[in-house]
Nucleic acid binder design. Structure first.
Length: 876
RNA sequence: GCCCGGAUGGCGAAAUCGGCAGACGCAGCGGACUUAAAAUCCGCAGACCAUAACCGGUCGUGGGGGUUCAAGUCCCCCUCCGGGCACCA
């Protein structure tokens, strides 16, 4: 085979080609064999800490490109901070509980635990293949008892402090899964697993955590989170939904038979602000409404109650016809909620035939039941002011209800010799009151204060703040989650599992294929228990916790991951917290990040930690898309990281994820782009290996006192590149421009390759350039960097090398190009020494033939000279 | 409906403080090497006009207006795209 042997000989003559398939596994093996390489040092190491964290993944079994991008960002930052001399904590773990494991168990007949753990092993292999710098000694897996026992421990603390309680609540129920779904698992009113199955609304007794206790602080402290994206802060603000207003009681006008014995003044027995608590169980009560616009109360022409309102229930029992209509409303609302189009529901209602007294006007207003009033916000009852509220207006139009204008825009009140009617509904607040008794003539804001005070004085109202945020329902009728450590005893009632009996272990032998209700309830050896108090027969809680519990505090566990006696050590956490940089998708902007903030505040109040907020800086990266669309199996446009790595290597795959777009923007994955990055890495490799003998020779030689012009040019480019990277890593994070500038440096080097080969650049200069090039590549292409670093004869890890400090004098250009304009239009570019004064610039510009021609027969009105920037002649 | 983002060549993008628009990369075109191809290397490349070819000229950052010697960048209005929230009284 003469051709083949010739090819082999050719290959031997040429420098070895860049071959990531050979380099990367070799280094990966070396790194895996050295677990301390990426280990954080203890708090007493004397170094400043830097905690960089990427959101922990759900172990689905496969990394997707969104993960790769997320981790490439975090890894670049972690590696950079190491080189900056920080004690870096960069951990990884698994959000390992959750419904998919149960679904997989049903499908493949694999126990959830086995399925989950094998997925974790597969994904960890992928992460290692990507060369990510995680401290695996701190790895956490939330489905293992070492972790979830602390969920249970926290639950007991919460219960003890009255922050965990039980109540009846409406839940999303998938009849197919036979379990409760979290809100985010309901997609367009259907189950995310069974897209044809409509989710039902059911009432169930559930465990809640009192997140509302912290509503005010969660809102207020958002102002402190200045290094969070404004978008996320706004979303959280809206989610918490604080609104200031007033509670006002409308007295029910009693019928003869309802009047309490011995009283006939028409007033009910007891003033009541909730509308539900009664002195006499059967006596109708006041109806409390919440309003942010008490100033419009003279325009209230009806009351609207939610169909679930207790008074409606009571009235409906006495009035069969009303009861029927209310049930219709409820059914309609329920099916709309199940379909997920509550907002599109047409407003409906039914009059009860009863009246209540407006406490300000003393006039009776009719009481209606309306489908647009929500029972779980405010008091479940509103005063309807059709003239000044869009929804009330729409409703009143439909049923021809009375309409009273009580506020007018300020400008309508003066001039024009009369009052013009506002366009209804008029909801502006820069207005004045009319037709409002003694309050007429007041501005809205002032009226709100005075009318609230008036109501309070007379005992029928008070100011009130209402939040949209609700308590967090954490019960799930599922197997694969943290068992809630509570026991129900017939004699002693609710009994917490004693702390020394934790963890309550999930039983491993369970027939997951059965359907209906909590799977744990059908495991007698789990559910049957003796009461810790009386020793009698008792029943365990068989619901498990929402998996958001796991992710609310996992980052604290990383700080002290192997602690067997506590969730973590307080002082260790004090050293590492808050997290310096958290990186993840914006899809967690609300739930995960609010729960995490709640958990932090709760732990602080329990004295476990000292910080008020868990996360100092938050970064939300953009999505990875393909051909303008989100990657999804159904669209068939999923790009597999494994494929990319197999074809181009981990370095090229990661580097492309950072190069194709700034990290906060969406990234359109184009495989040709990965190939381009791979070509660049190959050029780096070829250049570095070709010049390596001279680089090594230059290592021990001092830099020359004077640079040749070419040396100076290359050193200038080098320092400009270091300057760019330093700047970007300090906060802007546009890694795409970092990589572009390294490419520019490389372009300059290859353009001068012949000169370099001929010795115009001395060995010591070559060494400085190559060494720094490798340092700059470390954050983006760690495998190639490690390979070249070692070829250069270095044996300490690259991460421990110091990040170079750029020299502003070396980075500065000595000749700069200055544009010269006439009337703002570019005419010519002149080359002048850097630092040229205004006069020199003007004279040099004037000397240009093209400028002289342009100025001929024109009057120069003005000359703008900005030294270092431009010259502009303004002519007429 | 409300609240955020975004819009720059054929494509991904750059322009950090109001100062040469399009760095860097992809795709494309031309050339070198090769029997040929791939790979690699070198060069060209916003649009339009003009020219035999140069020299050159005009326009150009979603659209319209404004501020300024100068606007992708600042201000006002509008369109489209993406995301979040949505009867929250």
């Amino acid at each position: 085979m003469p051709v083949e042997s010739a090819a082999a000989a050719e290959t031997n003559k040429r420098p070895e080609r860049y071959n990531p398939a050979e380099i990367e596994p070799r280094w990966q093996a070396a790194w895996t064999a050295e677990p301390d390489l990426y280990a954080a040092e203890p708090p007493d190491c004397g170094k400043q800490k830097y905690y960089v964290l990427e959101m922990l993944p759900y172990p689905s079994g496969q990394l997707h490109m969104g993960h790769v991008r997320n981790y490439a960002i975090g890894d670049a930052l972690a590696r950079h901070m190491w080189m900056r001399g920080y004690n870096v904590l960069h951990p990884m773990g698994w959000d390992a509980f959750g419904l998919p494991a149960e679904n997989a168990a049903l499908k493949n007949n694999t126990p959830p635990r086995d399925w989950t753990l094998s997925n974790i092993a597969a994904m960890r292999r992928q992460m290692e293949r990507l060369g990510l710098s995680y401290d695996w000694q701190r790895e956490i897996t939330t489905c293992l008892p070492e972790y979830y026992r602390w969920n249970q421990w926290f639950f007991l603390k919460l219960y003890e402090h009255g922050l965990a309680y039980r109540k009846n609540s409406k839940v999303n129920w998938c009849p197919e899964c036979a379990t409760v779904l979290a809100n985010e698992q309901v997609v367009d009113g259907c189950c995310w697993r069974h897209e044809e199955t409509a989710v039902q609304q059911r009432e169930l007794e559930q465990w809640f955590l009192r997140t509302t206790k912290y509503a005010e602080e969660l809102l207020r402290d958002l102002d402190k989170l200045e290094a969070w994206p404004e978008k996320v802060r706004t979303m959280q603000r809206n989610w918490i939904g604080r609104s200031e207003g007033a509670l006002v009681d409308f007295a029910l006008v009693l019928e003869e038979k309802e009047k309490p014995v011995g009283r006939d003044d028409g007033y009910p027995v007891k003033l009541d602000l909730t509308g539900t608590m009664l002195e006499q169980p059967d006596a109708p009560a006041n109806i409390a409404v919440f309003t942010t616009r008490i100033d419009t109360i003279y325009g209230a022409t009806s009351l609207q109650l939610a169909p679930e309102h207790p008074l409606v229930k009571k009235l409906a029992t006495d009035d069969i016809e009303l009861g029927k209509k209310v049930r219709e409303l409820l059914d309609e609302q329920k099916s709309a909620r199940e379909k997920g189009d509550v907002g599109a529901l047409e407003k409906h209602g039914v009059a009860t035939g009863r009246f209540a007294t407006n406490p300000f006007t003393q006039e009776p207003v009719p009481i209606w039941v309306a489908n647009y009033v929500l029972m779980d916000y405010g008091t479940g009852a509103i005063m309807s002011v059709p003239a000044h509220d869009e929804r009330d207006y729409e409703f009143a139009q439909k049923y021809h209800l009375e309409l009273k204008i009580v506020v007018l825009p300020r400008e309508a009140n003066h001039g024009h010799g009369g009052r013009s009617e506002p366009i209804l509904p008029y909801t502006g607040e820069d207005s004045l009151l009319i037709n409002s008794g003694n309050f007429s003539g007041l501005g809205c804001k002032e009226a709100q204060q005075k009318m609230t005070a008036h109501a309070q004085e007379h005992g029928f109202g008070r100011s009130s703040i209402t939040y949209r945020l609700k308590d967090w329902g954490i019960s799930r009728q599922r197997y694969w989650g943290t068992p809630i450590p509570m026991i129900y005893c017939q004699k002693d009632g609710l009994v917490p599992v004693p702390e020394d009996q934790l963890p309550v272990l999930l039983p491993e032998k369970i027939d997951i294929t059965q359907k209906g209700g909590s799977p744990l309830a059908r495991v007698p050896e789990f559910a049957r228990v003796t009461c810790p108090k009386c020793g009698g027969i008792a029943r365990r809680e068989t619901d498990t916790m929402d998996t958001f519990v796991d992710s609310s505090w996992y980052f604290y566990r990383y700080a002290d991951a192997r602690n067997n006696s506590a969730p973590f050590d307080t002082d260790t956490v004090a050293y590492w917290f808050p997290i310096d940089q958290y990186i993840g998708g914006v899809e967690h902007a609300i739930l995960h990040l609010i729960y995490s903030r709640f958990w932090t505040k709760m732990m602080r109040d329990l004295g476990l930690i000292k910080n008020d907020e868990p996360i100092e800086r938050l970064f939300t990266q953009g999505m990875v898309i393909k051909n303008g669309a989100k990657m999804s199996k159904s669209k068939g446009n999923v790009v597999s990281p494994d494929d990319m790595i197999a074809r181009y290597g981990a370095d090229a795959t990661r580097m492309y994820a950072l190069f194709a777009a700034p990290p906060d923007r969406d990234l359109d994955w184009q495989e040709d782009g990965v190939a381009g990055v791979s070509r660049f890495l190959a050029r780096v490799y070829r250049f570095a290996t070709q010049t390596m003998p001279r680089t090594i020779a230059g290592r021990c030689q001092p830099l020359p006192a004077e640079f040749t012009p070419l040396e100076q040019k290359l050193m200038r480019k080098l320092h400009q590149t270091i300057r760019r990277l330093t700047y970007e890593f300090e906060g802007r994070w546009h890694f795409n421009t970092c990589i572009a500038s390294i490419m520019e440096l490389m372009n300059d080097l290859t353009a001068e390759e012949n000169a370099i080969a001929q010795g115009t650049v001395r060995d010591s200069v070559l060494y400085v350039i190559t060494r720094n090039l490798i340092l700059m590549l470390e954050a983006f292409a760690p495998y190639l960097a490690a390979e070249l670093w070692s070829q250069m004869g270095e044996d300490t890890p690259l991460l421990r090398a110091a990040w170079p400090i750029y020299d502003e004098r070396l980075a500065a250009e000595n000749i700069i190009q200055v544009p010269v304009q006439i009337n703002g239009k570019l005419r010519v570019v002149i080359a002048v020494p850097a630092g040229s004064e205004e006069g020199h610039l003007r004279v040099t510009a004037m000397a240009e033939p093209k400028i002289q021609a342009g100025l001929e027969n024109k009057e120069v009105v003005k000359v703008v000279v900005v030294p270092g920037k431009l010259v502009n002649f303004v002519v007429r």
